[in-house]
Design a protein around this nucleic acid. Structure first.
Lengths: 212, 212
DNA sequence: CGTTTAATTGAAAGCAGTCAAACTATGTGG
DNA sequence: CCACATAGTTTGACTGCTTTCAATTAAACG
């Protein structure tokens, strides 16, 4: 079990070759991404402290995505086969992993709906809602200002649009008073309105508290 | 353990309320889908005989998708808690479920890349490659003619485009000699060329035979 | 304080969507 | 076996959302 640090843009893991370790993010903010043949990037998931980054390494042949540090990250690495052994010995561990994997798949499905069938504006509002929910799991900012740790280009990579269009849609949401931007920070005067604009319902995150 | 039959368009399962059963598809062809607030449909996965349709019901609170029969389906239903108990008693079962869940998530990520960052033509070629791979797992047609069981509208719902544009792109692939259409059947003169056009590499399916 | 990175804005082009109509296949009942 | 109804495919014309390209401004960093 070793800790490693990564600065912005560093690869915490790479697609392709099989690796014998798994990792948990302990600090910072990271994403998984995939590239097209032309080099276009699609971000496929967001990860904060406590998130499993690549547990599939213990059970499938190879990672199908890159893992990239967005903001200074610290990740804890451990042996993949140790995880597999643990899952084989302790059913509760296996079931916990299973719930995590199903949840990941559920989030991925919502993202598919987002990029496939929603307008840029809706898509962006939806993305912002999820982003805010995920970073505020641990703590809500006292002043209501959330740090937007992703660049507009990265938001575009996550939502399937260009950075230029992200900028324009961000402005549109601002002029509709759905969000307020102050430098790298963002506040939401009326969360219900933003959720409405993004057709956002967090059920798909399958958070333990918000069941039903 | 009960068998039920479904004709085209029937719902095998519905999003929303918690259900106490899981199902395996034993015959036919089905999809999972989600709807936007406006009623636009996104197909999020394809399922053939032998596929688990909703094992997550045993581990998460509720299904986040509809399951819909595309062609006459038969599904085998069983108690979700029985599956959970089995996973808790037999680690090998849990690990097998885990591999299935990770694979689903991997496929979902590739679809995100597809709809988010690839052109309609590439996206369609990619989709056709995966479709052909999945239906020919069990048997390759002797004459090289695959039955295209999805309507153009459904292909659009899976790839995030309109039925009209699917039609046009299908014609484009035909004029490029990448596919040949004869009624509801489809043949591929040069699979390598179609795979190339779709930037298709089946590694993300994590099929047991094709490791490395 | 200079250099790099990110955000912003405008203008133009294009891919894909929308709307509407015609055509084809499939299936049903008489 | 034909007539009709329905579902799916095909085509054209037009619109428009996003992208692309390019240039400017602002912010972050050493």
């Amino acid at each position: 079990m070793t800790l490693r640090s990564f600065s912005s843009g560093d690869f915490i893991g790479r697609e392709g070759r099989s690796v014998s370790t798994c990792a948990i993010l302990t600090q910072g903010f990271a994403v998984r991404q995939k590239l097209t043949g032309l080099g276009d990037c699609q971000i496929v998931s967001l990860h904060g402290p406590g998130d499993a980054l690549n547990f599939q390494n213990a059970f499938l042949g190879f990672p199908d995505y890159d893992i990239r540090s967005v903001k200074d990250c610290v990740a804890s690495f451990f042996n993949a086969s140790a995880l597999k052994d643990l899952a084989a010995e302790r059913p509760a561990v296996a079931i916990s992993l299973l719930m995590g994997a199903f949840t990941e798949a559920s989030i991925a499905r919502e993202w598919m709906l987002n990029t496939g069938r929603r307008s840029a504006r809706t898509r962006l509002a939806h993305f912002l809602c999820e982003y805010l929910d995920r970073i505020s799991l641990r703590q809500h900012p006292a002043d209501g200002k959330y740090e937007l740790r992703l660049t507009q280009e990265q938001i575009g990579d996550a939502t399937g649009m260009t950075a230029v269009h992200v900028n324009r849609m961000l402005k549109a949401l601002q002029s509709e008073k759905l969000i307020k931007q102050l430098g790298r920070f963002l506040s939401v005067p009326n969360m219900a309105a933003l959720m409405d604009a993004g057709e956002y319902n967090p059920r798909y995150l399958h958070l333990p508290q918000a069941n039903s």
